[in-house]
Design a protein around this nucleic acid. Structure first.
Lengths: 182, 182
DNA sequence: GCCTGATAATTTGGCGCCTAACAGTCCCCG
DNA sequence: CGGGGACTGTTAGGCGCCAAATTATCAGGC
């Protein structure tokens, strides 16, 4: 169940040919970029696939993971949204389905009547305990083809890219519609 | 506009602590995995952000890219779906909106009346010509912090992971519900 | 010439995610 | 006090993605 991406990457010679049409195309950078995109997609898909067996999506899993860190300590939807990197509206939807399946429960905060407290139910905790060992084994198996040194190398390279991403976003923020040919 | 991921990765000591609860958790592998997930997410977001300025989504962009390879050569929805790695139903939806914006056009095939032929309109080709230079510069800027050697290294590591992913999927295919605690 | 099966595109219904707008609650400051 | 932010969670509407069912067309065996 892929989200969207080229099924097979274009060969390098195709990129070279395309570079003739578009002088701004850097074949080396584009090739690397496509590999990153493709691998990221495969990882996402693989993770979603691993979880789908138990009928929970990535989004639901994220919520359960956050709650499972401290199972007895309720959290507000806002903090879940912040930590998951998702809007509060999305959390509302996820909690609705999770609550329907009795994996989490909502209660009102006694201190602040604006707040809702989200708890992991026994059934939810049970599900996580049943799910996580397989999940972690899956994660380990994905990286089993890399040595320790290679993993460190990979993380270093990824961090460099993340650094560049941050810089770039600062240079041309998302909201500025610098060109809108449509 | 993130899709879903931990906003800040857990520190390594947290992973070590979690490993006490879950013996299957390999802290080193999990940390690397989270870095991959996070970077992939940031890249996706960055790409979507770059394109959103022109009012087109990743999905629409993929279709336009596929058509733009040979602008005068129509393609069927099925082949677009195959190459984009997406279901035909999704293609139908994307083509609907693209056609509404007059970026592509549909026509019936004279040879096989089951087939629909999708063309890039002049307006669509014009949009791509206006969009792609900036897009390719964006791609190049993302990887500007990596040297050529580092890019090659990165691609090699990613390919190793992809290899492992394929193997793993063969070992435990998606459809087998080996454990369904729900 | 038909029936059967394969294939093409679409429709339907659902989930996850977003933005924007909403109503309720808190708190500070005049 | 009492009003104006700033915050909460939710709703409404939209898009992208999927699976499953539907309709139209082709092609092969009898």
């Amino acid at each position: 169940m892929p989200l969207l991406l080229l099924k097979q990457l274009p060969r390098f010679e195709c990129l070279l040919q395309a570079a003739l049409r578009y002088p701004d195309l850097d074949p080396c950078a584009t090739s690397t970029f496509l590999h990153l995109l493709r691998t990221g997609d495969l990882i996402f898909e693989s993770e979603a696939c691993q979880l789908a067996n138990s009928g929970i999506s990535k989004g639901r899993f994220s919520i359960l993971m956050l709650l499972n860190r401290h199972p007895d300590q309720p959290q507000t939807p806002a903090s879940l949204a912040e930590e998951a990197g998702v809007t509060r509206a999305t959390i509302t939807g996820l909690l609705d389905t999770l609550e329907k399946d009795a994996l989490v429960s909502r209660s009102a905060s006694p201190d602040d009547r604006r707040l809702t407290l989200v708890h992991l139910t026994p059934k939810g905790a049970q599900l996580m305990d049943a799910l996580l060992p397989g999940y972690f084994r899956h994660v380990a198996s994905i990286l089993s083809s890399l040595t320790s040194a290679e993993r460190i190398q990979l993380v270093e390279l990824l961090e460099k890219i993340q650094q560049g991403l941050g810089d770039d976003q600062g240079a041309s923020p998302c909201s500025t519609a610098n060109n809108s040919p449509l």
